[in-house]
Design a protein around this nucleic acid. Structure first.
Length: 790
DNA sequence: CCTCATATACTTTTT
DNA sequence: GTATATGAGG
């Protein structure tokens, strides 16, 4: 169907003399933009290359220039280059940057994409070799779980003791390891009450009858095909004459084998990665792949990109100090030509709330410029947390002080097909001239309104300078449509007429209206009639969508909300501080970075250490390294002595990673003197200095003198004192102060009116959030809201 | 069939 | 503490 079916094309390209690539910088001025290491990586086109690219060393630049160079020198044609990434975002970025190198005239690269995207393409062509039809569907995680649930109950297994989630994890793990059901090692056969392998086999069988695959299958099926069909493998070996892999440290076993099969003949493979940034071991990534590269490809050139263009020397030194504690690294020494800069700042807090408060205040003053720093715009600041539940403290705090923020990596719910369709219906109902939305759903479900019909509408719309919706009306009026299409379109437009009217007169609740729209439009029926395995899930998602509507006043408000959280590209409003997980921050950079929650147990995560031991700890340490190296100018690490976890107050030790920060690159800040000027500061001062050697010697954080002092201080003052005294302020205004009808304010729900009082609980009818039962102390009189010292 | 109450578990996340 | 899942009951 497309160029890659054309065998002659690559045969011809294969005959392009390799000597052409010896052309130097004169012919290729872009080479002058590179530092020596980058240039070496770009010009080493022949044979295996391992590009060890530290954080901020211009990895993507080297990689994209390398592709451009392959093409510019005529060494390869676009379709002969296989370039794999892990995320669509990375693939997009690479495509854009290659295109920029080459000018717009060059055709796209058909084989630049994620492992999964490329495997889908390949698998559609060879589906029958693994018993699938080319139009197989791809199940997402939810579908997967649903299927497994069925299988588990069919096998008479107690779903409670053996949850489908767990089985899904096990099967994913096997797939990552490139294990088909018949190749489960004996040691793992006992998984899932000994029924793991059988259920895995049943699951694969079921997928096949459904003509479906899950994400892991995309790779595994292709791998099996390569392993069992030499002719197919041979074809692609000749095809993909040059292979490039981004983020090689994140590859799992299946991906590794897949790549090795394709590359082992011509060995033109260039893997780019950083073993120090391997943070996805928990989902099957094998650091071993990158560590082993030179063994797999003897004679490989190892090129280290070590000049960092991102961070100041102090930040680099701090990151290097931490990562140095890991064993078995390939080893890199990041350096920079930068001279000055702030040390990494370290600050301890009493509890998590205070940490959030301090960061909020710091962000506010940083916009003006504070502590002798240049002013920072909020867009230049980010808060990187270990676990997403840490985000809430910041959201709550920033909401109350009105600091604009954005959470990156939220739920993906709104990206689903059925949700976007439903949203499109809502959008047209709210504003009929939303052409994009109208076009999306005009023929979904199928109404016999194909390309031609839509074209007619568009022509009519454009000719009269009206919306597509009006255009459709005109087409109907002109009698330009016949038969089924005519009737269907009439019905649809009538429907939207009614629904739009209902939006306007607001008599019906928006939740009911939404249900009506989905029903009457036939969209729900569309999925009910759909027999594919994912249909039930989609219906459930639609239900969920309707339920989510309850939290909003009307459809407009809901759509606005979703639009904001959906496309962070076209985001409106002023600058905002970003909040995201450390994992989510990989590959990004910010002038100012806050790293809160550096406490043992939280970071490094207790679970990672319990389950993975030293391996887990080292991955956590790499995560710390990733976090620090996100910062360009200012990096602020903080921890709290107390934190509420699952509703319980727990005290914690400062993270062991804090002790690994080289002290000459760290500035210990004193927290503001709310309680007599800094238990934290006193503790911290001494924790530095002598603490480091002691801890290194004993490897026991509990022995840290700094920590002991910190604890002693805390005990002296009474651990609970600070937050109690804070609540007191509220208590006094609260408990007895309210009567029914009072106007009150709540941190999260905003303003409302007291409807009922039961003991210490109030029932409040909130303006926006509806009726809720609230413990009185969390609410203040609306008049006093401005004075409350939150 | 839907709602309410109780129990339970709970990093990280892309495809 | 909160979200989710399941079971009982209306």
């Amino acid at each position: 169907m497309s160029s890659y079916d054309d065998n002659d094309a690559f045969e011809a390209a294969a005959r392009v003399p390799l000597s052409q690539r010896a052309m130097g910088a004169q012919a290729h001025p872009y080479l002058n933009d590179l530092n020596p290491a980058q240039r070496e990586a770009v010009e080493a086109l022949d044979g295996p290359v391992l590009m060890l690219a530290g954080a901020g060393t211009g990895k993507t630049k080297a990689l994209t220039t390398r592709i451009a160079h392959l093409l510019r020198t005529g060494t390869a044609r676009p379709h002969e280059i296989l370039a794999v990434t892990f995320t669509n975002k990375a693939a997009r970025e690479m495509k854009n940057r290659v295109a920029r190198h080459l000018g717009e005239t060059v055709e796209g690269m058909p084989w630049l994409g994620t492992f999964h995207a490329i495997c889908v393409k390949l698998l559609r062509r060879h589906a029958e070799l693994v018993g699938l039809k080319p139009n197989f569907t791809i199940l997402d995680t939810d579908d997967q779980i649903r299927l497994l649930k069925q299988l588990i109950s069919a096998a008479n297994i107690d779903e409670k003791r053996w949850p489908a989630r767990q089985l899904a994890g096990i099967i994913d793990g096997w797939k990552n390891q490139a294990r088909t059901p018949d190749r489960i090692p004996a040691a793992e056969a006992s998984a899932f009450d000994g029924k793991g392998p059988a259920l895995y086999a049943a699951y694969q069988e079921r997928l096949r009858t459904l003509n479906a695959v899950d994400f892991g299958d995309l790779l595994l099926h292709m791998l099996v095909i390569f392993q069992t069909h030499e002719d197919v493998l041979a074809q692609y070996r000749r095809w993909f004459r040059f292979i490039m892999v981004d983020e090689y440290q994140d590859t799992n076993v299946a991906q590794y084998l897949w790549l090795r099969l394709l590359a082992s003949e011509h060995r033109n493979i260039c893997c780019v990665g950083d073993d120090d940034q391997s943070i996805y071991g928990w989902r099957g990534a094998e650091v071993g792949n990158i560590l082993r590269f030179e063994k797999d490809f003897p004679g490989a050139r190892v090129i280290r990109l070590e000049q960092n263009y991102r961070s100041t020397p102090h930040i680099l030194a701090a990151a290097s100090g931490v990562i140095a504690a890991n064993q078995g690294r390939l080893g890199k020494t990041l350096w920079t030509e930068e001279q000055d800069g702030e040390k990494v700042r370290l600050i301890g807090h009493w509890d998590g709330e205070e940490e959030a408060r301090w960061i909020g205040e710091e962000l506010e003053s940083m916009q003006q410029g504070t502590r002798g720093l240049r002013p920072f715009n909020l867009d230049q600041c980010a808060i990187l947390v270990r676990a997403s539940h840490q985000m809430r403290a910041f959201e709550d705090r920033f909401l109350t002080i009105g600091l604009p923020y954005r959470v990156i990596g939220g739920p993906r719910f709104y990206e689903r097909l059925e949700i976007r369709d439903a949203m499109a219906y809502f959008r047209v109902a709210v504003s009929p001239d939303d052409d994009l939305a109208f076009e999306r759903i005009v023929n979904t479900p199928k109404r016999g309104l194909g390309e031609k019909a839509i074209q007619k509408m568009q022509i009519a719309a454009r000719a009269n300078g009206v919306s597509l919706f009006e255009g459709a009306r005109l087409v109907l009026a002109a009698g330009d449509l016949a038969g089924r299409a005519k009737g269907q379109l009439t019905a649809l437009l009538d429907g939207f007429g009614r629904w739009h009217g209902a939006v306007l007169d607001q008599r019906e609740s928006h939740v009911e209206l939404a249900e009506t729209i989905l029903e009457e439009s036939g969209y729900v029926a569309h999925w009910q009639n759909d027999k594919t395995p994912e249909a039930p899930g989609r219906l459930e998602n639609l239900k969920e969508l309707v339920k989510a509507l309850e939290n909003f006043e009307n459809l407009q408000g809901f759509l606005e909300h979703v639009a904001l959280i959906m496309d962070n590209e076209t985001e409106e409003g002023g600058p905002k501080v970003s909040i995201m997980t450390l994992h989510g921050a990989k590959g990004l950079e910010f002038p100012a970075v806050f790293l809160p929650g550096w406490e043992d147990g939280l970071f490094p995560s207790q679970r990672a250490m319990d389950e993975q031991g030293l391996k887990g700890l080292e991955e956590e340490r790499r995560l710390a390294y990733v976090g620090i190296t996100r910062a360009e100018e200012l990096c602020t690490i903080s921890f709290a002595a107390n934190r509420r976890i699952y509703g319980q107050w727990q005290s914690a030790l400062p993270s062991r990673f804090i002790d690994e920060l080289p002290e000459q690159h760290v500035d210990v800040l004193t927290p503001p003197g709310l309680y007599g000027g800094g238990y934290g500061a006193a503790g911290m001062d001494s924790s530095f200095g002598s603490g480091i050697e002691q801890r290194a010697a004993s490897a026991n954080v509990y022995n840290s003198p700094g920590w002991k002092r910190l604890q002693a201080r805390g005990a002296q003052r009474g651990m609970a004192q600070p937050q109690e005294s804070r609540n007191m302020v509220i208590d006094m205004t609260a408990v007895s102060a309210f009567t029914t009808g009072d106007r009150v304010f709540h941190q999260k729900f905003g303003y409302g009116v007291v409807a009922d009082i039961e003991g210490d609980k109030l029932e409040v009818a909130f303006d926006k959030a509806g009726r809720k039962k609230i413990v009185a102390k969390f609410v203040v009189s609306a008049d006093a809201a401005d004075d409350v010292p939150f």
